[in-house]
Amino acid sequence: MGFKLLSKLLVYLTASIMAIASPLAFSVDSSGEYPTVSEIPVGEVRLYQIADGVWSHIATQSFDGAVYPSNGLIVRDGDELLLIDTAWGAKNTAALLAEIEKQIGLPVTRAVSTHFHDDRVGGVDVLRAAGVATYASPSTRRLAEVEGNEIPTHSLEGLSSSGDAVRFGPVELFYPGAAHSTDNLIVYVPSASVLYGGCAIYELSRTSAGNVADADLAEWPTSIERIQQHYPEAQFVIPGHGLPGGLDLLKHTTNVVKAHTNRSVVE
C-alpha cells in the first residue's frame, strides 16, 4: 500500500471513529477524501466538511520552486461564519470567499490569524475590503508590521502568557507558548472536538522541520505538551499544512522538532 493511500485511509478511519463516538456532533463529509496538494491548482481553494458547521479550507501556493498546501478553518456561528487564517495570499483568499459563498452561503463576518507569517495573514486586506472584521493577538499584529505583512485590524486580548485561553464565538483560542513562531495560536472547536494546530503542528508525513527561522526550538516541545494537557479530548487535529489526523500529530511534531534540534547540535 502506497504512503499517500495509507495517509488518506488514516484520515478516513479517524473521521469514521469520530462519527461513531459522537453521532450528534459529527456529520463528516462523505463526498470524498481530504484534498491534497496535487489536486488543488494554485489560485483555487477546496472546502472539506469535518463536522456539522465545521470545515477546513485548503489552498496551495508556490514557494521556492515548489507547491505547498495550506489549511485553515471555518466555523459556523449562528447565521454567520468565523474564518481562521487566510488562504495564503490575496488571490487565494478572494477564491476562498467565493467558494464559501458557493458552498455554504453564509457571510464571513470575523477572521482570526493564528500567527504573523504570510500563509496566515496574506489576504487580510481582501477580507477587510469584503467587510470582514480581522483579528490577531497584539504580538501577531506587531510582528506582521515588522515583517511588512498585512496586519489584522483588531487585537485579541488575554493571550499574552503561555497557557492563556479565551473564548471567541464558537471557538476557544489558546496560546501554548512559542513553537513554530513566538505568537502562534491554537484554535479548538469544543462542539466538535476539532483542534486546529496551525503551523505549530505537523502532518504525519512530514519528517523535516522546514521553516524554523522564527521558531523557538527549545520551547516548542513544552508548548505541545500544554496543548495535549489542555485538549486531551480532541479527536480531529488539523495541521497548518497537509493531512489531518488525531492527537498523534502532536507527538510526531515533537519528535521531528527534537530530531532537528539534535542534528543542529551535532553539526
Rank of each mutant, 00 (worst) to 15 (best):
G2T: 09
P23L: 05
A144C: 11
L81W: 01
G242K: 02
R46Y: 12
M1Q: 03
V266G: 14
S193C: 03
T109L: 09
R263A: 10
G163R: 13
I50K: 03
E33H: 06
L96P: 01
V194F: 04
G2I: 14
I20V: 09
V265L: 11
A51S: 08
D214F: 06
D29W: 13
L73F: 04
T222E: 10
T182S: 11
E219P: 09
I238M: 15
L217S: 07
N262C: 14
L185P: 02
G177F: 00
L185W: 01
V256E: 15
R167W: 04
Y135I: 01
S16N: 11
E44N: 08
A111R: 02
A136V: 03
G197F: 02
A200F: 01
E150N: 12
L156G: 02
A136L: 02
G123D: 03
F116Q: 03
I201Y: 00
V266N: 06
E225R: 12
T140P: 01
V54T: 10
V42I: 05
I17C: 05
G131T: 10
P107V: 13
R46P: 05
I104M: 15
V37W: 11
T14F: 14
S137Q: 14
W55Q: 01
N184Q: 11
I186D: 00
S264I: 15
R167M: 05
V121D: 01
D29L: 10
S22F: 04
V45H: 03
H230Q: 06
S38H: 06
V108R: 02
A90I: 15
V189H: 05
I17Y: 05
S38T: 10
K258M: 13
R110V: 13
V108W: 02
N149C: 11
S264H: 15
R76S: 08
T109C: 04
V126N: 07
H180M: 00
I151V: 08
D85M: 00
L9F: 10
Y196W: 06
Y188F: 11
H117P: 00
G43H: 05
D85V: 00
K102C: 11
G53S: 08
P232S: 09
R141W: 04
D85I: 00
G242E: 02
V112S: 02
Y34C: 13
H241M: 00
G163S: 14
D77M: 06
D85A: 00
A259N: 08
Q235N: 05
H230S: 11
S27K: 12
E145I: 14
A234C: 04
A136R: 03
N149L: 09
R120L: 01
G43D: 06
N92L: 15
I17T: 04
Q49F: 11
A209C: 06
R110S: 10
I238A: 02
A213K: 12
G53A: 09
P69R: 07
F174W: 03
S137C: 05
T93H: 03
Q229V: 08
L9T: 07
S70Y: 03
E145C: 11
L156V: 08
F116R: 14
P190C: 03
K251D: 05
I58R: 06
L243R: 13
V166T: 10
A90E: 09
F174E: 03
L6G: 09
T261C: 11
A129L: 15
A94L: 12
L249W: 01
V187L: 14
W88Q: 00
Y12K: 05
E150V: 06
L24P: 04
E225G: 10
A215C: 05
I74L: 07
T36I: 05
S16W: 13
S205D: 06
G158L: 13
S162D: 13
D119A: 03
D248Q: 12
G246H: 09
Y175G: 02
P152G: 05
S62M: 04
S208L: 12
W88K: 00
G198M: 04
I58K: 09
A165K: 15
E101H: 15
I17V: 04
G210R: 13
A213V: 12
S30H: 15
G210M: 11
Y12I: 04
I58L: 06
H117G: 00
K251F: 15
G122V: 07
S22D: 10
V166A: 05
A21L: 12
I50G: 01
K8T: 05
A234N: 02
L195T: 02
I151K: 15
I50L: 08
A51Y: 15
Q229E: 08
D216R: 10
P41C: 14
G240W: 02
Q49I: 10
W220D: 01
D79V: 13
E225L: 10
S22Q: 05
V266E: 11
H252R: 08
G122H: 06
Q49V: 11
V28M: 06
H117E: 00
L47D: 02
G2A: 05
A215K: 13
V112G: 03
H241D: 01
P69G: 07
V132W: 02
A178R: 10
T114F: 01
E267I: 13
G32M: 04
G72V: 00
A259G: 09
G198V: 02
H115F: 00
V146W: 12
L250V: 08
A213E: 14
G240I: 04
P23S: 07
K258E: 08
K251I: 05
E147V: 12
